[in-house]
Design a protein around this nucleic acid. Sequence first.
RNA 1: GCCCGGGUGGCGAAAUGGCAGACGCACAGGACUUAAAAUCCUGAGUAUGGCAACGUACGUGCGGGUUCGAGUCCCGCCCCGGGCACCA
Length: 857
Amino acid sequence: MASYPFSDIEPKWQQYWIDHHINKVEDDFSKPKYYILDMFPYPSGAGLHIGHPEGYTATDIIARYKKMKGFNVLHPMGFDAFGLPTERYSMVTGIHPALATENNINTFKRQLNLLGLGYDWSREVNTTQSSYYKWTQWMFLKIYNSWYDTDLQKARPISELPIPHHIIEPKETEAYKDEFRLAYTANIPVNWCEALGTVLANEEVDEWKDKGYTVERRPMRQWMIRITAYAQRLLQDLEIVEWPSSTKEMQKHWIGISEGAEIQFQLAEYQSEYITVFTTRPDTVFGATYIVLAPEHPLVQQITTDTFLPKVQLYIHQASTKSDLERTELSKDKTGVCTGAYAVNPATLENIPIWIADYVLAHYGTGAIMAVPGHDERDHSFAKQNDLPCIQVVKHSKNELVDILHAAFTEYGIAYNSSNDRTVQLNGLHTIDAKKKCIEWLEQHGIGKGKIQFRLRDWLFSRQRYWGEPIPIVHFPDGSRRSLDLDELPLTLPEVKEYKPAGTGESPLATVDSWINWQDQKTGKTGKLETNTMPQWAGSCWYYLRYTDPHNHDIFCSKEKEQYWMGGNPDSGGVDLYVGGSEHAVLHLLYARFWHKFLFDYQLVSTKEPFARLFHQGLILGEDGRKMSKSLGNVVNPDDIVKLYGADSLRLFEMFMGPLEATKPWAAKGVEGVNRFLNRAWRLIVTEDGQLSQFIKKNYVHNPEHEYILHTTIKKIGEDIETLGFNTAISQMMIFVNEFTALEYKSLEAMNSFVRLLAPFAPHIAEELWSILGNTTSIFTHDWPLYDESKCIQSTVEIVVQVNSKIKARISVSADATEEKLETLALAEELVKKNLEGLTIRKKIIVPGKLVNFIAN
RNA sequence: GCCCGGGUGGCGAAAUGGCAGACGCACAGGACUUAAAAUCCUGAGUAUGGCAACGUACGUGCGGGUUCGAGUCCCGCCCCGGGCACCA
């Protein structure tokens, strides 16, 4: 028996959908909306892999289902096309990245269409098109031209920044503003390779090191975005989104709030200078026996005494050549050197030595710590290695013995050894109260303050690359600069012949004189354009907004369309469902949330959060249970599967493999299984010669048992789609087909219902069956079938009879049987009688519709 | 080390505290066929008793607990996957 003709059906209906604009999305504000979104792909040269259709099919099913339920559904697709792989390809081949990107996108679109995914391509977004990145640039400049008002907890125009009265000079005013801008430049260590004359991305570092190149961390001027200003809100608003708890946890940890205090330690030699440290345990200040600065700390050079200078300088150099990983890998052996300088412990008033060590991170807190070896594990091991004093200042709260010379005691307890008549008395206080009292004392004496510290760092926003959005800022010889206005955007990339970096640490753009030399129309001055470009993250921070109004020339999207599609409610709105891999759990999702909140501050979007509900599809492994990779030879190509079994089978199998969120191995035989199911569904309706089966009768009445199957199938599939339980939905369809295949006659109505249930999953075969059943318009223009709740209840049910909780019999009774009736019937069973012989029934548990349990002894 | 997931037949997996293993793959037997493929029907957790109908014991990583009843809830442990990792 031949398979159903999928290779004829699939292209036919794909063409029909185009011709009849079935996937066209209208901005019909009268209908309820549903916005469902896939994380848009990076169009790599390799084309679609088997993992892509997993998430895309899931969203396609929901989109088609919601449409049949009467929603106006937005389910768009586009391409995140700026990025390093394309640029590297261009370096090797000389093919322009724009051309390579176009080719790759065409391949992707061809493959996506092959799968029957119902995207409205008229809304396609491509981050590399100037009509798109015009707005990425505009938004960046809006960030640049803003400051964060901590009182109002929102971004405001930089022009509204209060300038202190003593600042009068325009230059000083600008410098002051620059300190507050949400996008700013700073000298930040980057991965610099001298031999290559370029900055490397983190993922490139190992590759070049393996080839024998030296990569060092060197500070260079970089663009930063002050995402840390939003830390509190990014943390708080996780409460209002329906996301996987693991993803929320990861974001919480990434933002990393910790409460403590900043404390100033005066230098023993220079009374006017002090070192500020951050600590979460201000209550242990009496135990601070030395200070440690990060090697990069700005005071190091100044305070180091002549005797110690050579050693210190050597250490700083060594630390700079270590990667972050190398620094942490050596965590067991903490290295560090003494500076020869001393600071005054503000509580004990004793002089304590100042060291530098790379176990203290320059970028966290103040880059300096007070070391309390008695009550911090890291300080303890460092003190041990360097023979630094260790004293106990916290006792166990239940007076258990604590040996701080053996190991640090990090738990909360009672302050001890922590009073000084000339400073502060903490003795006897519980850690929580001691912290409070210590902070009060610090604040009263102006030597410190309570502080909430976040782990989150500002966002390194510049890249020294060609294939990214240019940063539209002009630098003038007098040191001033100007951001371009909307009417000067987009600032497009110039044509270049070479994609190699300039060799100076600047991007290839620096070599294009005609581009960087800017004759400024608005000021009449000449200047140079910024040569840094934006990171790939930039374009993906707001693409979901562009889909709502993709061709708008005047604004990135109109207010009306944004409000309609995003829902308009600040606390609950956003994309209704966002589906993508968990590899983006932190960075992309955090950057996009930040970007969205910034736009929210200017009322450019109506919701606090961009994505109301989030779901991560799982990874598909190779048949051998390992990650698919070319080198392992276990890669499955979707095109091959479509050729062999059709797109509907591929879609169905990817959904049937297991729960959407699970990591699961590919199984070639499994595709055959679902293909068999589709053939059975086909034969349920169609004869050998392609005609409607004569066993399908209009108005044919099924017995209650089959009515029950039909209606529970409708019910279950609807519920399963809502919860993304596609594997069990497909099981239910299989049960339906198995049961109805066994029947001689089938009602036309039942078949019409079933085919509509199948349609979101396997749209091509469903359209064909729908038309064979005599329908003349696309199945997707029809409503989702309704079920009759009364028919989802079985008239007779099987009841389990237990004696002492062990199953002894099964009885078939009418569903509404009373407890008395159940008991009588249960007791009548032979095996039940036998097992109860000689025993007294102590207790009866009767659960109608489920079981009868006799407890006897 | 810390924070999340997860552990159920030969395999992918199902199961509001109430019949463990639905559905599918693979397998075995049968029908159709000259034959094979395809298709259709039947069977099957493991062990065990019985010619058989059927029965018995055990069974959801391991050990305990709650409950008439636990894959599901609680406590402790082991293993696998993911994330973070000197964040003071």
